[in-house]
Simulated scan of single mutants.
Amino acid sequence: MSVFANLVADLADLLEPLFRAGAMAAAIVLVTACVRLLVHPLSRAAARGQKARAKLSPQIAALRAKHAKNPEKFQRALLELHRKEQVSPLAGCLPGLVQLPVFFLLYHLFSSTRIGGEANELLDHELFTAPLGGRWADALGDGGLLGAPGLVYLALFALVTAVATFNYRRTKRQLAANPPAAPGDEQAPGAGAMAAMTRVMPFLSFMTLFTVAVVPLAAALYVVTSTTWSAVERAFLYRDMPTGSGAMGAAAVL
């Protein structure tokens, strides 16, 4: 097996005395927590960047008024302001992007019947009778919605819905406090994309429901754990920033 697969399998072996048949699922949750701990410095840096951008709002408004008839000068002035203050419009995306390789590794591990020419033994593991390599469609075909595997997914859907609702309400309050700029107001590279992202931000967490339904259960556990971590982390990091800028720190649903 691959190095990553061996790492997950060895971790499951260590957890087996505590979690028995659910040791592999527990290992995936623990791996996710470790990844989020490693990414946390980036999340903190993104939060500092969001707060710095919020503090720049008066200066940006002054620049916009000064160069109202010359968008090119406004763009150059805005770029210079961001460069001077060491603020990046895309900093909030980094935590989510860094996590993607781990998610895809788990997806691959629990989607492949063979790894390195050997039978994939990871597919033998379950979470309360739901195979970690299975999907929601498989669970529906094995006992239906209220069958044992189906109930595992219902529990995950309930958790995701609770987290998504929390994120939705919090982000709506942030956007109400500081609505995103209209397209073209901030013309620095990436600012328009971030403004568009901010508009759909309240609904992004609900997309996790679709992800959980279509990926292998192992990858779904990663997504659910990471999304829950993100909700708690953002609530802490942006607790003193009740503005729309904080919402942009929620760019990643992973």
Rank of each mutant, 00 (worst) to 15 (best):
G116P: 01
G117D: 03
L94V: 14
L105D: 04
L105K: 02
E118M: 11
F110R: 00
Q99I: 12
F104E: 03
A91H: 10
G92Q: 11
L97I: 13
L90C: 01
G117A: 02
G92Y: 07
L97H: 14
L106Q: 05
L109F: 10
H108G: 07
L105E: 12
L90R: 02
V102A: 01
L105F: 04
G116W: 08
G96L: 04
E118P: 06
F103R: 00
F110T: 07
P101V: 00
E118Q: 13
L94A: 15
G116E: 14
L97P: 08
F104G: 00
G96K: 00
V102S: 06
Y107N: 06
V98P: 02
G117V: 06
F103V: 00
L100W: 07
Y107W: 14
G96F: 04
R114K: 05
Q99A: 10
F104Q: 10
F110C: 08
Y107F: 15
P101Q: 05
T113R: 05
P89Q: 03
A91Y: 03
T113M: 05
A91K: 11
Y107K: 08
G96N: 02
L109M: 09
I115V: 03
L97M: 13
F103H: 06
L90W: 10
S111K: 10
G96A: 11
V98K: 05
P101L: 04
C93L: 09
Q99E: 15
P89T: 08
P89N: 08
S112E: 13
F104T: 10
F103Q: 02
L109A: 11
Y107H: 11
R114Q: 12
V102G: 01
C93A: 07
I115G: 09
R114G: 06
L97N: 03
F103W: 01
F103P: 06
G92D: 10
G116D: 12
A91D: 09
L105W: 01
P89C: 04
P95C: 10
G117Y: 07
S111N: 08
V98N: 07
F110W: 10
G116H: 10
L105H: 07
I115P: 10
V102C: 01
V98H: 09
G92W: 00
P95N: 12
L97W: 15
V102M: 07
L90Y: 03
F110M: 13
L109R: 11
L100M: 15
R114T: 12
I115M: 05
P101M: 01
L94F: 13
P101F: 05
L109I: 11
Y107T: 10
T113F: 15
L94T: 11
L106E: 11
V98C: 15
